[in-house]
């Protein structure tokens, strides 16, 4: 499936963007030319040879701060996704198998969590529970978990109710083969879509929280924190906020494009699209089903 996702253009762009983002998250601090929290020059300088992205309001190197901040900004979002997955998927699976009472209660809880004004709760939870990085990741992870609750639940339902697993088992296929061939083919696309859209949300929320100074406080470098500081001095350096803006957007775009690519290549429509592309490559003239493009953004997963 991953290999297929890279066969469509949006998938290829997503792969490049995500590759860069994760590379920065892991090696960013090492690559930074200066220490992120040391004053290295004059305040609020524009880009120059010495400081490629200029300096901030206390004269720190912006590029170094962006690179140093990428770890917390990206890996923080990744942690959020992991927490949301664990917190959401387990009750989601259990809701199918544990009986009516648990099902009813868990569905009400999930309905309620979806209805909550997300960011206000994220801020309140993080700040009241100790206002640290760990708290913020757990707060956001828990609040985002309904996505995975639903994906896990619908996957479990489709397996519990389907006859193909039974049919395949009866016809002598091994359990492992059934799992690989049928279950994963059905379940993997929605899960990867949920993972990447949640990653996008996680990036935005972590950036929002650090922007507000919730969870991570200055002087620790984060993309959101840098943006907040830039905004204070927008009158002097109007273009400075665009640096974190562009970086955050690129990361978010990478996740969303990846979700789109998976959506495009999975299912029946996806098979048609891939076949059409293959045929086109081979030089035959085939119509790519165009009308579908308008519809693919239609339903949010959930």
């Amino acid at each position: 499936m991953l290999r297929n996702a890279i066969r469509v253009p949006s998938g290829r762009i997503a792969a490049v963007l995500l590759g860069i983002v994760f590379f920065l998250a892991i090696f960013g601090p090492v690559l930074a030319p200066d220490a992120p929290n040391t004053t290295v020059g004059a305040q609020l300088q524009g880009p120059s040879g010495a400081h490629l992205l200029g300096t901030d309001y206390v004269g720190r190197d912006v590029l170094s701060r962006m690179l140093a901040g990428s770890t917390l900004s990206v890996l923080g979002a990744l942690m959020v996704v992991v927490i949301a997955f664990v917190v959401g998927a387990i009750p989601g699976l259990l809701s199918v198998y544990l009986g009516r009472a648990f099902e009813w209660v868990s569905l009400r809880v999930v309905d309620t969590m979806i209805a909550l004004p997300f960011l206000v709760f994220a801020v309140a939870m993080t700040a009241l529970l100790g206002n640290g990085v760990v708290q913020s990741m757990f707060a956001v992870g828990i609040l985002l978990s309904p996505v995975f609750f639903r994906v896990a639940r619908s996957s479990a339902l489709s397996v519990a109710r389907s006859q193909y697993v039974e049919a395949a088992t009866l016809s002598g296929a091994s359990t492992a083969w059934v799992m690989r061939k049928h279950f994963l083919a059905k379940v993997l696309p929605p899960i990867s879509i949920a993972l990447s859209t949640t990653m996008a949300t996680g990036l935005v929320v972590i950036a929002s929280l650090t922007f507000l100074g919730i969870g991570v406080q200055p002087p620790t470098a984060t993309w959101g924190g840098i943006l907040a500081a830039d905004l204070q001095y927008i009158a002097i350096q109007p273009l400075a906020p665009l640096v974190p803006v562009v970086v955050i957007l690129a990361a978010v775009l990478g996740c969303n494009l990846f979700a789109d690519a998976v959506r495009d290549v999975s299912g029946e429509a996806g098979r048609q699209l891939l076949n059409a592309r293959a045929a086109k490559k081979a030089g035959r003239v085939t119509r790519v089903p165009r009308a579908r493009i308008g519809l693919r953004k239609g339903g949010e997963l959930g």
């Binding site: 979806i114 209805a115 909550l116 004004p117 997300f118 960011l119 206000v120 709760f121 994220a122 801020v123 929002s208 922007f211 507000l212 907040a228």
Partner: peptide, 12 residues
């Protein structure tokens, strides 16, 4: 809910 929640950041 997102509009109400978004208020936290936009107001800031």
């Amino acid at each position: 809910p997102a509009l109400l929640g978004g208020a936290v950041v936009t107001e800031s």
